[in-house]
Design a protein around this nucleic acid. Structure first.
Lengths: 192, 192
DNA sequence: GATCCCATGTAAACAGTTACATGATTAC
DNA sequence: GTAATCATGTAACTGTTTACATGGGATC
């Protein structure tokens, strides 16, 4: 199982609807997994059937009614069981890497554009993550926060997300720079 | 399609058997994708049927016969078409991140062990990648190599793989350190 | 009037993993 | 004799993505 435990982990920070989860699983907030709304609605239904989460219907005015889910005892136990099981290594699997791998045998311009685009997306995420981290740690410096706060899981995963995006941005810039030098252009390239 | 183009890109560096591809897709060499042997045999068969690769049977003594595949013109064209199509963003999807996200509500020791384990795996990969990069660039410094070499795709993707593993190792150490401080232990923790 | 956001879902297609199956050779 | 490496595949299962479907309210 895969998404299953990510959803359980996300619900540790309070009840949530499928829609809310989808938003945070899509853009940054929950930077430890990614999933589309459809998958979440499905998974939440299954989790409810298995007794790992509990849903309650909330009627709103001027909004469609929504279902808010909470972790159950059984859900928390399942999460604990999962945390103790051994991990499989994780891998990068990225179309853009495949394109760069092939870049010597394929038109360069579109790859350059995509590197720029990806770099910009990474920059946007860096911004979001930094703000999230600052919000979590408040006035404390990181060391103190990590040593004393009650909940540090989300901070630590966000830290990883931040470093990953920083690395992505740097690699995109470096790669695009090197490729531009090779193709004679110098727009956005490294220092002269 | 996903694995498909990764296989085509891998075949740019010469003909290869399913078995050889599986090895390099599993351990580092081709750090831009990951796949199991079964999937590769299947994919290569499909690619051959579609005329994107060509296979030839090679009988060996004291080894089972193997099938070596080469890119065709059509395969190269397909790769070019793929490189021009727009990219979707990529995401981290990692069980270990889910466990760290949940770490405040779940037993810490197993998570610490897994962080150490993952850190060690990352260190091993760093070693492999560094040696690969050094082999590719030979006597040249990186800047000169990237500016002048005929083929730089594999170097650039490996560079990304290297940074990713470095980041993984650092995060594992940092996270395990912080969690050990919190749980009173200090084995492997940060400076006192 | 069009588009975006909220809110939920079903169904089909596609991709990836796990289990099973075979069989020879080499190294310990 | 036991395990590892070479070498290929099939079948069943699980997980993810894409397409389709619905409908009201808010914003421009």
């Amino acid at each position: 199982m895969a998404l299953r435990h990510a959803v359980l982990a996300a619900l540790l920070d309070g009840e949530s609807s499928g829609y809310q989860l989808a938003r945070s699983f899509d853009l940054g907030m929950a930077n430890f997994w990614h999933a589309l709304p459809q998958q979440l609605y499905l998974e939440l239904t299954k989790l409810e059937k298995d007794g790992l989460v509990e849903g309650r219907r909330v009627v709103q005015e001027s909004r469609p009614p929504k279902r808010l889910f909470t972790l159950t005892e059984a859900g928390l136990a399942e999460l604990a069981r999962f945390a103790e099981a051994s991990v499989k290594p994780s891998f990068i699997r990225d179309d853009l890497m495949v394109k760069v791998q092939a870049v010597d045998h394929v038109p360069v311009e579109p790859v350059l554009e995509q590197l720029d685009e990806r770099g910009a997306m990474a920059a946007a995420k860096i911004d979001i993550f930094e703000r999230f981290l600052r919000r979590l740690r408040g006035d404390l410096d990181e060391e103190t926060f990590l040593a004393t706060a009650e909940r540090v899981g989300p901070y630590l995963t966000c830290l990883r997300g931040l470093r990953f995006e920083e690395e992505t941005a740097a690699w995109c810039a470096r790669t695009a720079g090197a490729l531009r030098v090779r193709s004679g252009l110098t727009r956005g390239g490294p220092r002269p």
